[in-house]
């Protein structure tokens, strides 16, 4: 499954062990919130980068206090219809100031990229081949947005303000 990060195909250094699987000896791992809560000390003692794989029914407030521990938050879309991770992404970026990698995993298609991008996702685990070309096209399809989000690019409030200032 290709990983697209910051507009390019990226190597994925992260491992996602199942909850009942042993932790790999080394390297970055992303675990569930339950495992993090259960094995916190063991995970911290590994002295390797930690990530969290978050289910869509989890509230951001349930792990917001621990955000400094994580370099990766992967938000899972069980189906494209499940829009909860969009809210979670904005809360992580805009309310809790999370600056690490924010990855969309699960049912992720190119026609959702634009929305995800605007909500603060910067990495996408996609299922199809030829993904990069599609992604590059998808993110340039719309360049103007009516809403302010954490991502200031192309937000109309700013654009109109800039035009007014130039007049």
């Amino acid at each position: 499954m290709p990983l697209i990060k910051n507009g390019a195909i990226a190597e994925d250094a992260w491992q996602f062990p199942a909850d009942d699987a042993p932790l790999p000896g080394q390297g970055p791992v992303a675990i569930s919130l339950e495992r993090w809560q259960r094995e916190r000390e063991v995970l911290q003692a590994r002295r390797a980068p930690l990530g969290l794989l978050v289910k869509s029914d989890t509230q951001v407030e349930d792990f917001a206090a621990d955000l400094a521990e994580f370099e990766l938050i992967a938000l899972d879309f069980p189906t494209f219809r499940d829009g909860r991770p969009y809210s979670a992404a904005r809360l992580l970026r805009e309310r809790h100031g999370y600056t690490g990698e924010l990855r969309a995993v699960g049912d992720v298609s190119r026609d959702q990229f634009l929305f995800m991008h605007r909500c603060g996702f910067d990495a996408f685990q996609v299922s199809s081949g030829g993904a990069l070309e599609g992604w590059l096209r998808a993110v340039s399809e719309i360049s103007i947005w009516y809403q302010p989000t954490g991502d200031p690019r192309g937000a109309l409030g700013t654009l109109r303000h800039r035009r007014a200032a130039a007049e």
Binding site: G83, Y146, Q147, T149
Partner: peptide, 14 residues
């Protein structure tokens, strides 16, 4: 209308 148009967070509501 403008605020809700392609709102990135609210395009996949329940």
């Amino acid at each position: 209308r403008q605020w809700s148009t392609l709102h990135p967070e609210f395009s996949f509501l329940p």
